[in-house]
Design a protein around this nucleic acid. Sequence first.
DNA 1: CCAAAAGTGTTCGTGCTACACCCATGT
DNA 2: ACATGGGTGTAGCACGAACACTTTTGG
Lengths: 228, 228
Amino acid sequence: MECPKFAVSVDLVVLTVRDEALCALVVRRGVEPYRGAWALPGGFVLDDEGLEEAAARELAEETGIRPGSVHVEQLATYGSPGRDPRTRVVTVAYLALAPDLPVPAAGSDAADARWCPVEALLAGDELAFDHAAILRDGVERARSKLEYSPLGAAFCAEEFTVAELRRVYEIVWGARLDPRNFHRKVTKTEAFLEPTGATTTRDGGRPAQLFRRGSAEHLHPPLLRRTT
Amino acid sequence: MECPKFAVSVDLVVLTVRDEALCALVVRRGVEPYRGAWALPGGFVLDDEGLEEAAARELAEETGIRPGSVHVEQLATYGSPGRDPRTRVVTVAYLALAPDLPVPAAGSDAADARWCPVEALLAGDELAFDHAAILRDGVERARSKLEYSPLGAAFCAEEFTVAELRRVYEIVWGARLDPRNFHRKVTKTEAFLEPTGATTTRDGGRPAQLFRRGSAEHLHPPLLRRTT
DNA sequence: CCAAAAGTGTTCGTGCTACACCCATGT
DNA sequence: ACATGGGTGTAGCACGAACACTTTTGG
């Protein structure tokens, strides 16, 4: 077929909440271009490999994250002619929301990998390619997702308390929420949380019920930021 | 660089409201594969051409739509290995919301182009490639957009009445809305509508005020479908 | 007992729904 | 006059914000 052919890659915005901050996974580039700079994990799509499949493979390769424990969704595609100095590369970005995991193992072409607060990454100018813009879009998507879906729980461990979930919202949104109203809201919303029956005192004070992620996909009505 | 290279195309889900139905623009394929079948308008991205740029070019080529009059946004990217029988093609889908326009002129490689109700397109099995899935995603995105953004007005002519805007919502959502409450909601929402000062009696009855699209990007609070 | 955090009850404001009602035009 | 649709007023309800208050643990 007579048409231009481009390299196609996937890049991952992997977000988690740790140390009271929203953090993204970044890898130190071991090869040119941008050697030594931080970049989002990612790589080229292989022949006969689907996009989602490529994203899952890269996630596993560069982070050791097992697919079942994280939420992954397509974010957007970036293909400006000049975004990669080597050649034309179109990249499909994926957004992954993960619980707080140990620092991942470095992959083959990544000299180093670490969690870094998104605030620092977006304020600085250290990210390779157009990865700062991709990260910005991913963070904005994540913030919206918390409003309209129960995906805040994707940042929590398998079993978690309402207070832990609330901390996720507060950190991602950068806003304080009333603990009592938040509790009522999330426990009353059908299929948001599934009680385990167990309790924990790890947060201090009166024992808190433990929950698992429920089966709900959407939130009706949504949990809105700022009441305007 | 040692990596697979793929053809990259853009496909357009161009939606409008006409004849009391949500319609999509489809073109009759003049070449193999799927010769004679309906498909979404689209084409390959050229060297040194951005994705958004390619989408705008295809929109102009195949429909004659001038860029300023429609809303265009990226929808999603589809790249399953088998989605095009010829070779590996990754397609970036764009969603365009347009007012009711005359039937567009056929483009170079499109034997015929027409508006077709999405209901019929999704019910039948006439769309080439995975375009039915892309259209379904586009329609779902459009439905959500009406809730959280003032983009319903993108389906209206430059100047429109509140009743015309309401019909758009009713047709896209497939639900009836209370005319009085809808009127209050959209006119009270800051920057949703900009009054022109003129009136029209084209809908019959008492003259209705004419409005233009306002400058708002988002709706707070949203205009929700079903009250659960 | 006290501190701390979980969880409940209650009040108040706001926004949506439903519908009664009036307004301004065409025929 | 009357039909038709535009537009306003208002009562009732649902839900979120704010906060007083009770519950249950650890120290």
